[in-house]
Design a protein around this nucleic acid. Structure first.
Length: 961
RNA sequence: GCGAGGGUGGCUGAGCUAGGCCAAAAGCGGCGGGCUUAAGACCCGCUCCCGUAGGGGUCCGAGGGUUCGAAUCCCUUCCCUCGCACCA
């Protein structure tokens, strides 16, 4: 039978469907709590686009684990659902409606959406359903994922919303939610908050919090924005854009002078703003303002480089520490005519000197001057200026120490005191703050995007008692790999309040304030519990799913006043049967949000017994060494890959090329290599499956009819079982599949060379080995292994139990003997390679008995040469041999040092001569030469080359001619 | 900058948590040979340098150190990737 993955895989899919194979229900066992249940989850996909090969791996990793646990005898639940919450799908639909080119390209070219269904995609759920049905579900079924599809749902379903409603009402009752103001990106055109997806320009730009230093001009405040508040004592002058429009406005009861744009932003940032007067910047040029910290009077100079649309539109100049400011000052001084045209006395400007306020290593007294001069920058348009400025800023921030006049902060490093200093002055009223982008940001609607304060509900992840509970959840969690544990605790420490709502998007409305929608990272924290009951909830009318219902379901009878809903209590049994989550598989970049939220919410809402047991994180995928990108069409679709190579090949490649948590790279040439390997495996298996092979094996009594080399292979098989099991227990899919497949293939290669394969014993051995390997490989390549195992034994591999180590076949001695033979073969080969001779006779000389005695001494005494010599020299016979003994001890000490205790024990048991004699046939066959084995101290030894005396225990001398 | 993970032979990539069977797995690629009418598949050998006897030399980003012994442990340094929040 030829290997035809398409045909064979289709058959098994049909069988699984017909049998409802992966739809577990709680069993009726008397004590269900005694039963081993394994509940495996993975983040539900977000169907804002199609499935690609990266997703295929994300969902195959948990599938392999699920299949492994099933073979180990567990009841395993592996469900799937769809995350549609938030704006990405809505955004995608809008771009589709506008027939945006890039969006059309993704849909039509990358995901092959045909024109006749395009219309169906023009509603959010229509869009989602298309990708769910046509891409994800088809892909997952083709891959052979053992999912219980009865439990499928979307996060936009009414019943799911009822569940989330219950969750958020419960959290509010427990004071884990708080209302407050928060800066958001805001489109001035649409007068609405926007997300990164809504941006046309500046997607990567993050807003920053500027400190406003409130310079004064009489009663008027002239706030100057800076990211370096500690430089307040180094300000020598201010700059204003002469052509821009500025306003005098009442801001929170004070009179402020800022750019017109700034006034608008301040209003959006929760300030009372009333504009009284507009004027050009030039009007105030030449005026002086007072530094609120030092009391110094400084002059406002004209400047074109000041952007009125950045922060307040008025900037302060710190020429000692800012290369930009230093150059600007130089340039101002160089143009007295211009100054005069604004009525400024050039002499006044000429007198301005940089005022250093900190010391920094690697620079002189005036760092900005140093930096500019050593880089030989003379012009503020020099592109190198930016780099130099960054260097100065970095150096000053991390190593700069403040001068004496900073009082309590004197001598401190900027990095350590900047925030404290700014907060301090803010409290005293000298400083203010505002948010703004350092670069222009534009929405897709074409409007300018600014930072606005918005009323928001927060999850209070900063509550200390909640953090403590989350940390306890981490402590009892099994983290894979283990070194990610610290990342969870680190995230918990660092996590602050989390705004959990949005103004629009799909999902569940905030129960008590329905203009808000609960955002995606906040409606996906305990949904794993929903899987346990999702399919049965369908029978219950939506309106019955109120708070009491879920209280009864999750907290039991006592949690509700009056009689609890029987249906809820019934579902509670199934929830308790499956919960907690045994293993959650997720992407490593979700540790800093989703996975930690998952822990927070479980810690808050459920008892410790229901907290997650394990999280395994997964790495990123590359395609031919580059990041996948659906917008660039740089993706491989699972359907296509499966069509080309078969699902088993796809699975095996994805699971075998890297451990789950490592990054992996889909390379077509390597995938083809895997397909070849599987086909080879199939063909070899076929040779062992026919009636002839079965009959041959039936003749064999494994106790009596097997040879040394058969037992060696069976011993290796036990080691492999052990290794694969240990690896899969740790979700090490790569190690496990490597050991079961490639690792053992090496052993088989040797076996085929060494053994006479026509013997019935060999057939029996190979069939036994095949059966065991099929079971070990079943989680990885379920189609192929099921088929072959069924052909071989009558049952599919997935129905066969996981192999256990049979100690009867474990034999360190056999393995050690075989290693000696292998080594001898290698040595012969080496000699032949170097001498390039065609051998006629190969003579092997085993070391003399006295040498073996010395070995035994080393083994007993240990690897201290002096001690061994002391012991050996007690023996008069050995003493006579003098230097020869000394050399031998040196060699043997080296040998013993390199060997573990078990191997050493096995070595002391083996008889070298008879071991090599069993390999005579093999060596003769390999080299087409006569092979003879002698002992060095034999009477009738034939030693034409005089080599025999070179023999050392476990290193026989060899003579070839 | 902070946090995490890396730098290994032509490439991919093990080993490095428990230092010695490590010139360093496996796959791919390359070379030579076998099988075959031929191709493919399959099998064998070679694939850092030197060597007509199983050996020697150099090597695991760089530089130091610990040790009888280090790719593996410690220190310093250079470089790369990812995350850093309201994006899912």
């Amino acid at each position: 039978m030829d290997y035809d993955p398409q045909e064979l895989e289709a058959e098994w899919r049909a069988r699984w469907d017909a049998e409802n194979r992966y739809e577990p229900d709680p069993t009726d066992a008397a004590a269900p709590e005694d039963e081993e249940t394994t509940f495996i989850t993975v983040p539900y996909p977000y169907p804002s686009g199609g499935m690609h090969i990266g997703h295929a791996r994300t969902y195959t990793v948990p599938d392999v684990y699920a299949r492994y646990r099933r073979q180990q005898g567990d009841e395993v639940l592996f469900p799937m659902a769809w995350h549609v919450t938030g704006t990405p799908i809505i955004g995608a639909v809008e771009r589709l409606q506008k027939r945006e080119e890039s969006q059309m390209s993704v849909l039509q070219d990358t995901y092959n959406v045909s024109d006749d269904v395009l219309e169906d995609l023009e509603t959010p759920m229509g869009y989602a359903h298309h990708f769910i049905e046509e891409h994800y579900k088809k892909g997952m079924r083709s891959l052979g994922l053992s999912i219980d599809w009865r439990r499928e749902f979307t996060t936009n379903d009414d019943r799911y919303s009822k569940f989330i409603t219950w969750q958020y009402e419960t959290l509010k009752e427990r004071d884990r939610l708080e209302k407050g103001l928060h800066p958001v990106k805001y489109c001035t055109e649409q007068e609405n908050p926007v997300t990164t997806h809504d941006l046309l320009e500046g997607e990567d730009v993050e807003y920053q919090e500027y400190t406003l230093i409130k310079f004064e001009q009489g009663e008027t405040v002239v706030p100057m924005a800076t990211l370096r508040p500690e430089t307040v004592r180094g300000v020598t002058n201010a700059y204003i854009n002469t052509d821009a429009t500025y306003v005098e406005a009442a801001v929170d009861g004070e009179t402020w002078l800022v750019s017109a744009e700034a006034a608008e932003k301040l209003e959006l940032q929760d300030h009372e703003v009333e504009i009284r007067r507009e004027f050009a910047g030039s009007e105030v040029v030449g005026d002086t303002v007072t530094n609120p910290v030092t009391g110094d009077e400084i002059i406002i100079l004209p400047a074109e480089f000041v952007d009125p649309d950045n922060a307040t539109g008025v900037v302060m100049s710190v020429p000692a520490h800012s290369p930009d400011d230093y150059l600007a000052l130089q340039e101002a001084k160089a143009d007295p005519d211009r100054l005069e045209s604004y009525g400024i006395d050039p002499a006044e400007v000429d007198a301005i000197e940089p005022v250093p306020i900190l010391d920094v290593e690697g620079y002189g007294e005036i760092p900005a001057k140093d930096a500019v001069e050593s880089a030989e920058i003379t012009d503020s348009t020099d592109p190198e200026l930016e780099e130099v400025t960054q260097d100065v800023y970095n150096a000053e921030f991390h190593t700069g120490t403040l001068h004496e006049e900073y009082g309590e902060y004197a001598g401190e490093v900027i990095e350590d005191v900047r925030d404290e200093l700014a907060t301090n002055y803010r409290e005293q009223g000298a400083f203010g703050a505002m948010y703004d982008f350092p670069e222009p940001v534009v929405s897709r609607a074409g409007g300018k995007v600014v930072v606005a304060y918005q009323d928001t509900w927060f999850l209070t992840y900063n509550d200390e008692d909640w953090k403590d509970a989350a940390k306890r959840a981490v402590e009892r969690l099994d983290t894979t790999p283990e070194n990610t544990r610290g990342e969870y605790t680190h995230t918990i420490d660092w996590l602050n309040e989390w705004p959990c709502i949005r103004n629009y998007g799909l999902g569940t409305r905030l129960p008590w304030d329905d203009e808000f929608v609960i955002e995606p990272l906040s409606d996906s924290t305990i949904y794993m519990a929903y899987y346990t009951i999702a399919h049965r909830l369908e029978e219950i009318p939506v309106e019955d799913l109120d708070g009491d219902f879920f209280d009864a379901l999750f907290y039991g009878d006592d949690a509700v006043d009056g009689d609890a809903d029987e249906r809820a209590l019934d579902l509670r049994a199934e929830w308790q049967y499956w919960y907690p989550v045994s293993q959650r598989f997720s992407a490593n970049d979700l540790i800093s949000n989703h996975l930690t939220f998952f822990l927070f919410h479980h810690a808050e809402l459920f008892d410790e017994a229901q907290w997650p047991e394990g999280i395994t994180i997964m790495g990123m995928g590359l395609l031919e060494g580059e990041k996948m990108s659906s917008s660039k069409g740089h993706v491989v679709l699972p359907g296509k890959a499966i069509e080309n190579y078969g699902a088993d090949t796809v699975r095996f490649f994805l699971l075998n090329s890297a451990e789950p948590w490592q990054d992996y790279d889909w390379r077509a040439d390597q995938v083809e290599g895997v397909e070849d390997q599987l086909r080879r495996f199939w063909n070899r298996a076929q040779e062992l499956i026919g009636d002839d092979a079965a009959d041959a094996a039936a003749n064999v009594d494994p106790e009596g009819d097997l040879e040394h080399i058969d037992r060696w292979l069976l011993s290796k098989l036990q080691t492999t079982i052990d290794d694969v099991t240990a690896a899969l227990d740790n979700a090490e899919t790569r190690t496990a599949s490597q050991a079961a497949f490639y690792g053992f293939e090496e052993d088989l290669k040797w076996y085929r060379r060494r053994a006479d394969l026509d013997r019935d014993g060999a057939v029996w051995t190979l069939r036994h080995v095949l059966e065991t390997r099929l079971r070990l490989l079943a989680p990885f390549v379920p189609f192929l292994t099921n088929e072959l195992h069924e052909q071989l034994t009558g049952t599919p591999a997935e129905d066969a139990p996981w192999p256990e180590v049979d100690e009867g076949w474990q034999s360190p001695r056999t393995e050690t003997e075989e290693r000696q033979i292998e080594r001898l073969a290698d040595d012969v080969q080496d000699i032949l390679t170097v001498t390039e001779q065609n051998p006629e006779t190969i003579r092997v000389y085993v070391a003399a008995d006295w040498k073996r005695e010395v070995f035994e001494t080393v083994r007993e005494v240990g690897t201290d040469v002096g001690q061994v010599m002391g012991e050996v020299m007690q023996d008069p016979d050995l003493r006579e041999r003098g230097d020869a003994v000394n050399d031998l001890v040196q060699d043997l000490v080296e040998l013993v040092r390199g060997v573990d205790d078990d191997t050493l024990a096995a070595m002391s048991k083996i008889d070298e001569r008879s071991t090599y004699e069993t390999a005579v046939d093999f060596l003769e066959r390999e080299h087409d030469a006569e092979v003879a084995v002698y002992a060095e101290d034999d009477e009738g030894i034939d030693d034409p080359g005089g080599k025999a005396s070179n023999a050392v225990p476990f290193r026989p001398a060899i003579h070839i001619e």
